[in-house]
Design a protein around this nucleic acid. Structure first.
Lengths: 333, 333
DNA sequence: TGTGGTACCGATACCGGTATCGGTACCAGT
DNA sequence: ACTGGTACCGATACCGGTATCGGTACCACA
């Protein structure tokens, strides 16, 4: 059966007996429409089941209702939660999030951003501050609001919401030192790609150094973080350095893997060995042993970033906003 | 500084000394362009840094390069992985995935789908087969290819890629019975919303019934699945029914929580108590105790769904495709 | 009675592409 | 020389909205 063409603004206008322009204004709630006509248009639209065409509106209005989100990975629940927060943040604004995944690949990132820009979105939310120069150029020249998220250690292109990973690493080190730990190990994955994990590592190491100590041993691996990797690296690390009393992980997944190893190996956690992760993922709470972690407000970050783009009000002038979150440390003791 | 207007097709045409139309054809690789002009246009485009405007192309060409993806949740890693698979599947097709999250709310789902359709995307990927009638109407009348994913138990609107959850539940029950288990318990979350989990439960129960048995006890809770919930519900269940030798969970997260409880409570797993989840999430492998699970090809499902939309070739006629996956059971013994 | 506002409305010109269709050039066949 | 293809090209009309700007009514005020 022939599917009916979907009604356009002209149809609404005809139905309401006004001009296209008046219909457009009425539907958008723009000014210069009499109450009578506005009602007429609205009911007409409802009657014929009119749904606006954002494509046309975007093309005409110079700005689309699209929000581009660039994240390194979806498999990492952290970014999925950020996305979730973004979805919450734009709720009711009529905007659509579109995402691109870079797999921590700078070239892919450049492509993704370029591609997104071609849709001329209302805004772009990109992860991190450490893009290569050409990507930064793209972002700086983009005629859209750019929000960089998750990180604060660096110079943002414009707005920025996140936390200092360097500080987070340092804070965890301080807390662990204060808890009496003395022999530190480190386990990380994908440090070559994940600059934020690296910043945490550096912050942690710097704090240790300030206290006249350092990591006794580290185990790192390429590829992305899995509990399995955490388990294996921990086993390896502890076999070589049984004297460690604390391991810092690049994130909770690895730390959980560490916990699993310890349980299987009969190592007492956190008594003999304290494990510290990062992110404060939900499952940490229900682990059979307690581990330390830094809780990060992922959803809030997403929400805040989305709002910056959605809200036109705050600061018409190009004062770049900077929203700072601080992870909360939980030693789990 | 005044940002330069981004170059349009007309600019390219002017630069190449041909008409807009010829430039358009050349860039799209459509026919009717001499090799000479095609090269001219391509180099001109490169020279002035032309990037097409998909918005305009979509408006004009009647079909956008957008693919709408409707999923119930992002927090659940399973859907994040599906999304990931979709992103892989459309790789290189120049399409953009846009997503909408429904939080398992049918009304929200209706809204999200409606909203997505307004962008008239090339295709729509929606989760599940059990939409309410009005939503189905929306999908059936949509002038786009619709792919329903994750489920097979029901009547798809058109294409469909996924697995039978009823069968998956039944298969797991058979496997557990074959492994000699006799006293079954069940733990689930959000069954009111999650129809697929419910189908697994029903399939499992039906299989038990065929063998003249059934669940001795069940513990369910609203809200979404977390390891914490799994841990609590398991503790509760085992306290009341210490004689159980097998628990079926609505998914791996809950099952992991169950495992954590058992470890903490000193229950021998899987010897005394066998835990069975669903999904085959990565972390299952590294758990300190082995649990059973059904591995689902989430990424493949996403990829397959994306391909159905991306590829115009297969079946010009509206033969609805149906791609069947079967989860693979791993008892972890 | 004129004059200036204010409120509202709609014609028209885009936005940046693509579909369509009618040329023009050039060559082969007769 | 005439006809019919084939290959290629570009003018024009959209796609479905919004920005802009010039009306028209109508009222208040001088």
């Amino acid at each position: 059966m022939a599917r009916k063409r979907r009604p356009t603004l002209s149809d609404v206008a005809a139905e309401a007996g006004v001009s296209k322009m008046t219909a457009s204004r009425a539907l958008r709630g723009a000014g210069d429409v009499s109450k009578t006509n506005a009602d007429l248009v609205r009911t007409a639209a409802k009657r014929i089941g009119y749904v606006g065409n954002p494509l046309a509106a975007s093309l005409s209005g110079k700005r689309s209702g699209l929000i581009g989100v660039v994240i390194p990975s979806l498999t990492n629940i952290v970014f999925a939660e950020v996305l979730s927060g973004i979805a919450e943040g734009i709720e009711g604004s009529g905007m659509q999030p579109v995402f691109g995944v870079t797999n921590y690949d700078p070239d892919k990132e450049y492509e993704v951003i370029r591609n997104m820009l071609s849709w001329n979105p209302a805004g772009l939310i990109v992860t991190g501050l450490d893009q290569p120069e050409d990507t930064l150029g793209l972002l700086r020249n983009a005629p859209v609001s750019v929000v960089q998220i998750m990180d604060l250690d660096g110079t943002p292109v414009s707005a920025c919401v996140g936390m200092s990973h360097h500080a987070a690493g340092a804070a965890m080190a301080e807390a662990l030192l204060a808890a009496g730990r003395t022999a530190f190990g480190y386990v990380g994955c994908g440090l070559d790609r994940d600059t934020r994990a690296r910043k945490r590592f550096e912050g942690f190491a710097a704090a240790l150094a300030r206290h006249g100590t350092g990591f006794e041993a580290t185990r790192t691996r390429e590829g992305h973080s899995t509990t399995q990797a955490g388990r294996e690296l921990t086993a390896d690390l502890m076999a070589a350095h049984p004297g460690l009393d604390c391991i810092y992980y690049s994130n909770d997944d690895l730390a959980a893997g560490g916990a699993f190893h310890c349980i299987a190996a009969g190592l007492e956690v956190p008594g003999a060995l304290l494990l510290a992760g990062f992110n404060g993922l939900d499952f940490v709470e229900s682990l059979p042993v307690r581990i330390a972690t830094s809780r990060t407000p992922r959803r809030e970050i997403g929400r805040a970033a989305a709002r910056i783009i959605v809200d036109p009000d705050r600061g018409e002038d190009p004062v770049a906003q900077r929203i700072v979150f601080s992870p909360r440390i939980d030693l789990g003791l």
